[in-house]
């Protein structure tokens, strides 16, 4: 168990059954009064923020979270399945939990899955992924309209802006941190 003296930014604790990350912390103590421990915490499952103030003597259950390398297998409706290649153990995550990460999930992509007990609560992607363009308008040679980008759809269904010279069928590199086009994969 943690006590209030352990509270600091980055600490992970369990509150009402959910894992929370302490994102801000301060110790407040009015003259001659009791100490207050003010925290701002982020729910690690749904991302919501919570302000809580504690006093001396209160304690917290540590949230044990584990990151495991897994491979994305397939999607069925809104359920995405991942598998640990070592143990063949599978976990399923909802589209809502994945958030924007779903835009880059191509079968066999290797990701880090964050587990809270048995439950998968999020994934970390590689910073860059290669995805093939399935649909984009043809670039009219001699177009001087000044547009320096156009929309393109990639094989996961994700739509992003790409430079005009990119054609359907080409492989492009996308930065998963920003969701933006990075470069073209030659050859």
């Amino acid at each position: 168990m943690y006590t209030v003296a352990d509270l600091k930014k980055g600490l992970k604790i369990i509150l009402d059954g959910d894992p929370y990350l302490v994102v801000a912390f301060d110790f407040v103590k009015p003259g001659k009064g009791q100490a207050l421990y003010r925290t701002k915490m982020r729910n690690m499952i749904n991302g919501s923020l919570l302000d809580r103030t504690y006093r001396s003597g209160e304690s917290f259950e540590p949230a044990s979270l584990e990151e495991r390398s897994m491979e994305y297998l397939y999607k069925e409706g809104e359920h995405y399945t991942f598998m640990d290649q070592q143990t063949y153990e599978q976990v399923v995550m909802e589209e809502e939990t994945l958030g924007d990460a779903k835009n880059y999930l191509l079968e066999n992509l290797k990701v880090e899955v964050m587990l809270f007990g048995e439950k998968a609560i999020g994934i970390s992607l590689p910073n860059f992924v290669n995805l093939r363009v399935t649909e984009t308008e043809q670039w009219a040679k001699g177009d001087t309209s000044g547009n320096d980008s156009k929309p393109a759809t990639v094989e996961t269904g994700y739509v992003l802006r790409v430079p005009p010279f990119i054609e359907a069928g080409e492989l492009i590199v996308i930065d998963t941190r920003t969701g933006e086009y990075s470069t073209r994969v030659k050859g």
Binding site: F27, V28, K29, A35
Partner: peptide, 8 residues
Amino acid sequence: SDERGSRH
């Protein structure tokens, strides 16, 4: 003892 914060 145990007093540490932005003002302590």
